[in-house]
Simulated assay, not measured.
Amino acid sequence: MQAKGAFGEGVVRIGGAAAIPAVLRDHGVDPAELLAEAGLSPGLFDDSDNMIPFVSLGHLIAICVARTGCSHFGLLVGQQGGPASLGLVGFLVQHSPDVETALRTLVRYLHHHDRGAVPTLAINEGSAIFGYAIYQPGVEAAEQIADGAIAVACNIMRRLCGPDWQAGEVLFAHRAPPDIGPFRRFFRSPLRFDAEQYALVFPAEWLTRPLAAADPDLRRLLQKQIDELEARTAGDFPHQVRRVLRTALLTHRAAANEVAALFSMHVRTLNRHLRASGTTFQHISDEVRFEIARQMLDDSTMTLSEIAAALDYADASAFSRAFSRWSGVTPGCWRVERPASPGGER
């Protein structure tokens, strides 16, 4: 367990997973015993501001799934979360003037809560797509974490728009679980598995809804605290590029000049900053693409052509060549040789 207030790449506040002990007890499992098995401090859940490495959270949840036999463990944890579980960022979200500002605030600042994934918001032909994508490599039970995150996102929308709010469709970037009943009961919306991303899809007009309970004065105070956090973490430029790239790849706007424009700089300046940090744009781009590709191969039944299109390759052959260069094996061999994800099926 990292110290309270610790902040580095690949860590997450425990507040988003605060329901793990309760869900374990509901399944007859002693949380203290399981934390010891996972090599984590028994006091991890005593303070929602405690930080845990993102990889350690994935390992913990994988053990939880194995011990409880519950294939929707992540969903059960996430459906007990909401804006308050996101700490300072969640409070800032709740005091936004309208739904769009609230969601864009979450997209802009969630890295102060979660340094292993990125939220996304896109508007396409009258539909809003509010998503969550893990970019931290080597995470066990990634599909469980993402299921929980989409449940939290749904609770955020219900908090902002009213308890009866429903998505037009809920997307999951993994194959259908053995029992989709818990997903149907919680989301109360059409579900689509084997999608390109994890996301809530809903009419974009919801974004204009004002938040009557928002307090402008409190928001200014919260914004000041966020700005101070931003100033302390401004030097981690490669991490910021990884976050932006994960979103840019999903929207097919991941060229170096397009990413540079998002930082209001020329591509030469972007490259210079990355070289000063000991990396390159191409290296980070390959890392992010490789991680997305592994997740899609491991957790979904998407074809190689579909994955190639999602990652903006010309065709499946181009994707296969790149994947073989990264991993030493073809995508097909990778998919055959990998074991089933915790709680999933092959």
Rank of each mutant, 00 (worst) to 15 (best):
R185I: 04
A322S: 15
I150P: 06
T251E: 06
P177C: 03
Q197W: 03
A84H: 13
R325A: 15
V259P: 04
K224I: 02
R220E: 12
R294V: 05
M1G: 07
P163W: 04
R13D: 03
A256M: 14
F290N: 10
C154I: 01
T269M: 09
E287F: 02
A256T: 13
R243N: 03
V336I: 09
F323R: 08
A261Q: 13
E228Q: 10
A310Y: 09
G69C: 10
S48M: 09
G126V: 03
A128K: 02
A195D: 09
V89M: 05
M302H: 15
S277I: 09
G58M: 00
C70H: 09
A141S: 13
M51V: 14
F130G: 03
E196H: 14
A151Y: 06
L304M: 11
A260K: 03
A234N: 01
V118D: 01
A146E: 07
R192N: 07
D179Q: 06
A3T: 01
F45H: 01
G235K: 10
N155T: 04
G343Y: 09
V55N: 10
Y198A: 03
A234Y: 00
L121T: 08
P216F: 11
A255R: 14
R13E: 06
D315E: 12
V93K: 00
L270P: 00
L211Q: 07
D299F: 13
G328M: 11
R325D: 13
L304Q: 11
G15P: 00
L60S: 01
G82T: 04
V99L: 01
T120K: 00
L222M: 11
Y198Q: 07
L270N: 04
A128L: 10
E230C: 10
P31F: 07
I63F: 05
H239G: 03
L171V: 03
L304A: 11
S189R: 11
F54C: 01
L207D: 03
A122S: 14
H283I: 01
L110F: 12
H283E: 05
